[in-house]
Structures are given as structure tokens and as C-alpha cells.
């Protein structure tokens, strides 16, 4: 009975068994935390701490930001190791437009592919045709038009982008408020106004109409980009996120250096405390007593980088078309 599976025939596709299966997995991932991991030990910590899924990558956004260079799909060797080490679903990132990386990820058995602005884009005009894959895709969006363009291309989950690798939640908030506000605005328009709204949003009319009638996106809407504390997670869930992605906030310490969870027991303990606390706060997002308890249990935090201090050309969120 999920709305997402019964919403009619957008592009003739929302009833296809392929898309229903993709949306089905997205449904199972609701109300939880998806954690970025760079090695097997981090993946195990994520699973032990209650993550619903892990995102396998070579460098978390904070490191990509600090180190520069071209950021690409993770090595298949790393992805296979992580798949073998946990029982929860494993996600991995492909560059925007890089359908050959996505084909590799599908071949490896990754459960969800993130066509991600965190990596260096491979195509400055086209995103991946996600209908062509059996594996479901998640894509980032900053506003409703961008979200609907990605859904039109076959994305089975949207995550608001925020600004990755900062530990500053301000843009995650901005993008979630933008999308939910735009959805509310659509619901009061008359039928004849929806055609113009579709033009303004630069999104397919059928999807715009569907959102106007249902008051929600036709796929789950998760949140990412700068969520670093239990209270950040609770904030995004109260603003309408159905699950949160946490990247650099769990396994990073000062500067752009990861905690050494493999060799240093104290640093491992610190990572575990943060992972468990964010999981706890995400499920109990409406219970300040539990969010307080979770916040108190956290050891250390990533130092963070104020998103306002980042020059325009260094923002990751502006990647994607």
C-alpha cells in the first residue's frame, strides 16, 4: 500500500515491477542512517552501531575536499570486501553521467547506486539513464525541479544535497525546506496553473501534477550533506527527511584525517559512540529526552567547515543539471 508503488503511471513507469522493486528497497531503508565507510572495519562499526546501509567509498567528502584531484568510483576490490563483511545493504557512488561506472557497480551486486555530486562529474549535461538499470539509484537535489528531473531519469530515491564534507547542516536544511516548500506551493494550484509550474520547475508535467495531487515526492526523500551530530539528524527528520545519510561526521577527526579505527582502540570507541548516537537520535527524532541522551554519549566531533566560508566554485552541491 505504499504511496510510492501505487501512484499511477508517471511516464508509464510507476507500476512497472522494476521500479516497484527499487522503491520497495527504498521503503525498507526508511527511518534509519546510511553511513559512509572507507574500509571493512568502518563498515563493521556501522553495522554494529545500527546503520541500515553503508556507502562504500575511497575517501569521504571531507577528504575529497581537502585533498582535491579527481574523485571517482571506489575500487571494485574495496566494494567487494565491504559487501563480504556486512549483511546490511551496500551502496556505492558513480560519477554524474558515468554510466560505465554504474554498470560496474551493478555487476558487483551493489544494492543502491548513488549518482553523486561528491565525485567529479563525468558529463556536464547528461545524467545517467537510470531506467536502463536493474539496480536502484539515489540522486541528490537542491530543489523540486532538480528532484523531479532525476526521478524522470529513473531515480528511486532523492536525497537533498546539503554541502558534503563540511559538518555544517545549513545547506541540508535549506534544500529540505526548499523542496518541501515548493511541494506545498504546488498543492494549491489549479489544474491550468500546473502547466506553467512545470515550465518554471523545468520538470515533466506528469510528475509535477502527481506531486501537486499527492503533496509529496513519488519516491522517498532522504537527507544528506553536513549532518554531523544526533541533533542534526533529529532536525532533518523533523523537517521531513525519511532517512539520513551521514558521511564525514562519524569517522573523521581534526582536519581531514580519519579516526584510526583499525589500530587505535580509543579512536575506534569515538567512532562507535558517534555512530550509535546518530542512529538513536534518528529513530527517536521526536523525543528530545532521547536525543539529549544520544548527544551526551558522543565522544568528540568532526571540527567542521562553515559552508558560508566555501567559495562558490568549490561547492559540490552545484554539480548536477
Amino acid at each position: 500500500m505504499a504511496d510510492h508503488t501505487l501512484n499511477g503511471n508517471q511516464n508509464g513507469n510507476f507500476n512497472s515491477s522494476s521500479l516497484r522493486l527499487k522503491l520497495g528497497l527504498a521503503e525498507m531503508l526508511k527511518g534509519g542512517v546510511i553511513m559512509d565507510v572507507m574500509n571493512v572495519e568502518q563498515a563493521r562499526i556501522a553495522e554494529e552501531s545500527g546503520a541500515i546501509s553503508v556507502m562504500a567509498l575511497e575517501r569521504v567528502p571531507a577528504m575529497i575536499r581537502a585533498e582535491g584531484g579527481v574523485a571517482r568510483m571506489a575500487s571494485p576490490k574495496l566494494i567487494k570486501q565491504i559487501i563480504a563483511s556486512v549483511s546490511i545493504p551496500v551502496m556505492a557512488k558513480a560519477r554524474i553521467g558515468h554510466f560505465a561506472e554504474a554498470q560496474v557497480l551493478q555487476y558487483l551486486g551493489v544494492d543502491f547506486i548513488d549518482e553523486s555530486e561528491v565525485l567529479t562529474p563525468a558529463d556536464e549535461m547528461h545524467h545517467i539513464d537510470k531506467h536502463a538499470f536493474t539496480t536502484p539509484f539515489v540522486c541528490g537535489a537542491r530543489n523540486l525541479g532538480e528532484a523531479l528531473r532525476r526521478i524522470s531519469e529513473g531515480a528511486a530515491m532523492i536525497r537533498t544535497k546539503g554541502e558534503p564534507g563540511t559538518g555544517d547542516v545549513v545547506h541540508a536544511v535549506q534544500h529540505m525546506r526548499q523542496i518541501t516548500g515548493q511541494i506545498r506551493a504546488l498543492t494549491v494550484l489549479g489544474d491550468e496553473e500546473l502547466y506553467h509550474a512545470a515550465k518554471e520547475l523545468q520538470a515533466p508535467y506528469e510528475l509535477v501534477r502527481m506531486v501537486a495531487k499527492s503533496g509529496k515526492l513519488p519516491v522517498p526523500n532522504f537527507s544528506a550533506g553536513g549532518i554531523a551530530t544526533p541533533a542534526d539528524a533529529a532536525l532533518m527528520m523533523q523537517l521531513g527527511a525519511e532517512t539520513v545519510f551521514v558521511g564525514s561526521g562519524i569517522f573523521m577527526k581534526e582536519g581531514a584525517t580519519p579516526l584510526d579505527v583499525e589500530n587505535n582502540p580509543l579512536e575506534r570507541e569515538e567512532a562507535v559512540s558517534r555512530a550509535k548516537a546518530i542512529v538513536l537520535a534518528t529513530t527517536h527524532f521526536n523525543d528530545p529526552q532521547i536525543v539529549a541522551e544520544a548527544s551526551e554519549a558522543v565522544i568528540g566531533s568532526m571540527k567542521g567547515l562553515a559552508a558560508a566560508a566555501i567559495e562558490q566554485q568549490n561547492l559540490m552541491q552545484t554539480r548536477g543539471w
Binding site: G32, I52, V279
Partner: peptide
């Protein structure tokens, strides 16, 4: 419901 049983178990341990 469905979801991740490992995650649910973590909450049940509290």
C-alpha cells in the same frame, strides 16, 4: 515490519 533486522535488534537491546 521489514527493514534491517540488525538495526532493529540494536534498539531492542536498549
Amino acid at each position: 515490519p521489514g527493514g534491517e533486522s540488525t538495526t532493529m535488534l540494536k534498539f531492542l537491546e536498549r
